[in-house]
Amino acid sequence: MAAAPRTQRQKEIRRHLWIYGAITPYVVVAIFPIYWMALTAFKQDPDLYRMDQFPLWFHMAPTWKNFSYLFYSTNYGAWIVNTMMIAAWVAVITLVIAVPAGYALARLRIPGSENLGIAVFMTYLVPGIILFIPLARVVSMVGLQDSWWALVLVYPTITIPFCTWLLMGFFKTVPMEMEEAARVDGCGYLGALLRIVLPVSVPGILTAVIFAFTLSMQDFLYGLAFVAPGDQKPVTVGVPTELIRGDVYYWGSLMAAALMVGLPVAILYNFFLDRFIQGITGGVGK
């Protein structure tokens, strides 16, 4: 009898080794570019541009030079501020518009609300590449060309459909009885929404804020097409377009600039990825 648990344990260990062995190539492929970027960001130039030594580790002391260069000699600081301001405004606009819409579609039994919800969601699938030329006209019509405010105007076209859909699913999970009880107690529809439904929906609303942020960070096209002045660009456009001088690439500072923004966004998005997948697959897989 004493041998039974041990063989069970050995079986488990063997199974784990097999899985780790099989999954390692995937992890290496996924992570290697990021490791390489990080290494490049901290390497000194003489260490970077040579092929005769093992390139995957440092041969000279790591340096912060690439990072300080960004803040002292480029618009990097301004791009980060732009990006933060854009994200904050997009989040506010998205919430103000998507929360009421999601609530109305989920709870107020509007005729055809299911179809309307799908129609709103489908607009998420209209790709920017079809819209960016006419939107360029819209942006210049309202006089926002050449400033990051143009992106505050257009990014909600991506975030509102997605967040409305997400919140619609979320509001459907709030128990109906609570609102009805509140209305019986003398709250109107607005009162029930503000005092009962919103407080219990804070997690859903926070998720929507995160997506307003991460989805607008994934854009490249609109930022490239609508914002030309160097100091107005969001960081995701400024880094690849402004930090390259002619044909000369300063890879160290480029990688430093890329990772400093990319990694926090990637990690934040990572925690909410399941909600994203649930959102687009319509909650089929829980």
């Binding site: 570019p33 960070m217 995701t236 990825l273």
Partner: peptide, 23 residues
């Protein structure tokens, strides 16, 4: 492990393309 493997998808696109350009 799942969190590590999905990083390519969560990284902003222009950021990761720069990394590849260097590679």
């Amino acid at each position: 492990i799942r969190g590590l493997v999905v990083i390519p998808f969560t990284l902003p696109i222009s950021i990761s393309v720069l990394g590849w350009k260097w590679m």
